[in-house]
Design a protein around this nucleic acid. Structure first.
Lengths: 185, 185
DNA sequence: TTAGACGTTCAGGATATACTTTACAAAATA
DNA sequence: TATTTTGTAAAGTATATCCTGAACGTCTAA
């Protein structure tokens, strides 16, 4: 399916490998990154079998990887006439990938964290009502409550950050580089 | 060292555990998050032994964990008169922690990625000079070059985002919640 | 209705990661 | 200087993660 000039192929493989190297930024496994890079550079929407053969891995792994990427929004299933297999396409815009990835993860923790903090606040308030509390404990409860309230404020700030990115308002403050695509660099 | 009201202790432990639960957002191990939570809630600067006993882990692990957190900037070594052991203090501002963590990881990948992309660009340009190239390959090289240039632009945008956060300019656009600390909620 | 193709799930094995123990080096104390 | 204390490095072990192959369910085509 993908026959390429040998030398070109070699360079491209290096590009893809290097592009998938950074282990820290994204908390993604190496496979996910490689898969994205493959789809990004080969451009054509792919089937699971294509991925498996390009990455030399099992189809089951591809299935799992694709599911994760879809969950985040970095990959979507596309429909192609006369094709039985499922076909997938990667998000091709770097900025959009960045936004989707981080907003997904940021958002993912806001809800559970908020509710667990609210619960802790209730519990601490209840405890504070009790009669036989020493002064020291009362003070500690107060402090922890402060921290929890701060935490709630912080989470709502994170929501704001998410919105800043998802509405693309961010680009008003940090504009995309609009390089002249025609120029020979 | 840390003797607390039993019930309060119980609640606090739950707070700390829940606070460290979110596995996805930070690409941090559970231990790092628990360590931060411990230091955050216990407030007092701690020694490695304190941490080890509070988390029920070995001192060596604490040493490693602390090193990582210092690297990111989330924890710093403080000096205390008449104390032989090293003492560490956690960043107590949630917003600052967010900024330090993400900017650290974002920044960390910009430099290596930029240079590897530049290298790939050079290699592709060299290949493009060769005589015996078919048209198809030439077109592919062009496309990959486009992608690499796009990638460079994207990375410089990320630099801009980092700056937005580190300069705290972000707070002009997404303001912190300034809750009235005196009110009884 | 059947046969084959496709995607997914599950149990097992392999690999990588994190933790502990032991040992060592550096610094402080006596 | 000798001794103790503290932090780190190294090696081995345990644990969690990821990958594979086989089995299953679903859908299409005949």
């Amino acid at each position: 399916m993908f026959r390429l000039n040998e030398k070109f192929k070699e360079i491209r493989e290096r590009i893809i490998e290097q592009n998938s190297e950074s282990q820290t930024l994204y908390s993604m496994h190496h496979t996910l990154k490689r898969l994205m890079s493959i789809m990004y550079y080969y451009e054509k929407p792919m089937t699971l079998d294509d991925m498996a053969s390009l990455l030399g891995m099992s189809k089951a792994s591809m299935s799992n990887a694709v599911r994760e990427l879809i969950e985040i929004g970095l990959v979507k299933k596309v429909w192609k006439k006369g094709e039985r297999k499922d076909i997938y396409q990667v998000e091709e815009d770097n900025y959009e990938s960045f936004i989707k990835f981080f907003c997904y993860h940021w958002r993912k923790q806001i809800t559970p964290k908020t509710s667990s903090m609210r619960k802790s606040i209730r519990e601490l308030k209840e405890l504070a009502e009790e009669d036989n509390l020493d002064e020291e404990t009362k003070a500690l409860i107060e402090k922890d409550l402060e921290k929890l309230y701060d935490g709630l404020d912080y989470l709502s700030w994170v929501s704001g950050v998410i919105e800043l990115f998802e509405t693309h308002e961010i680009f008003d403050y940090v504009p995309k580089k609009s390089r002249d695509k025609m120029s020979n660099r």
